[in-house]
Simulated assay, not measured.
Amino acid sequence: MRGDAVVHTYAVVLPTAALALEVVSALCPEGCEPSLVGGLSSRIGRALKLTPGDGRQV
């Protein structure tokens, strides 16, 4: 990653990483390259009020 790059972070609740990457690809700006960097705990998902299939920038 370049030092001047903008990083967008998204939280999604889906059963597989492949589905999560599909959703994030649709949400992120044109030209971005989404990557999976970790899992989201149930506690954090509830705190963010995410529902299955939901995704948003955090």
Rank of each mutant, 00 (worst) to 15 (best):
P15M: 02
G38M: 07
P15R: 03
G31Q: 05
G3Y: 10
G45S: 10
K49I: 05
V6W: 03
G31P: 01
R46S: 14
S35E: 15
G38F: 12
C32K: 01
P34W: 05
G53Q: 09
A17M: 12
A17W: 07
P34S: 08
K49R: 13
E33D: 10
A20L: 01
V58R: 03
D54N: 06
V23H: 01
D54L: 03
R43A: 15
M1K: 11
V37K: 09
L48K: 05
P34Q: 07
V23Q: 05
Y10R: 08
S25H: 10
D4R: 07
H8W: 08
T51C: 09
G55T: 05
L27Q: 05
V13F: 06
A26D: 10
S41C: 11
L21N: 00
P34T: 02
G45W: 01
D4V: 09
H8D: 06
E30S: 13
A26K: 12
L27P: 01
L14Q: 12
M1H: 15
T9V: 09
G53W: 05
L21S: 08
G53C: 08
S25G: 11
A5C: 13
V7E: 11
S25D: 07
P52K: 14
P34E: 09
P52H: 12
V24G: 00
R43G: 11
A11S: 08
A11P: 00
E22T: 02
E33H: 10
V6M: 09
E30D: 15
P34M: 03
A18T: 06
L21A: 04
L40C: 06
L19R: 14
P29S: 07
V13T: 13
D54C: 14
Q57L: 12
P15Y: 02
S35C: 11
T9R: 04
V23W: 02
L27T: 02
A18W: 01
P15H: 02
K49N: 06
S41P: 08
E30W: 11
E33S: 12
P52F: 10
L14H: 04
Y10P: 02
S41Q: 08
G31A: 08
V23N: 01
V37Y: 06
A20W: 00
A20D: 00
K49S: 04
L48E: 01
D54A: 13
L14A: 14
Y10W: 12
T16Q: 01
E22A: 05
A17Y: 08
V7I: 12
A18D: 13
L36E: 14
V12D: 01
E30L: 15
R56A: 07
T16L: 01
V24K: 02
G55K: 03
R2Y: 11
S42T: 15
T16D: 03
G31H: 07
E22P: 00
G45M: 08
K49D: 07
K49A: 14
L48M: 11
V13C: 15
I44R: 09
S35T: 13
S25L: 09
D4A: 09
Q57K: 07
V12Y: 00
V12G: 02
A18E: 10
P29H: 13
E22N: 12
G38S: 06
G45E: 13
V6Y: 02
G31V: 06
R43D: 15
G45D: 05
P29G: 03
A26G: 12
V24F: 04
S41H: 05
D54H: 09
R43F: 04
C28A: 15
E33R: 14
V7G: 04
A11L: 03
I44N: 09
A11H: 00
R46P: 11
L50Y: 01
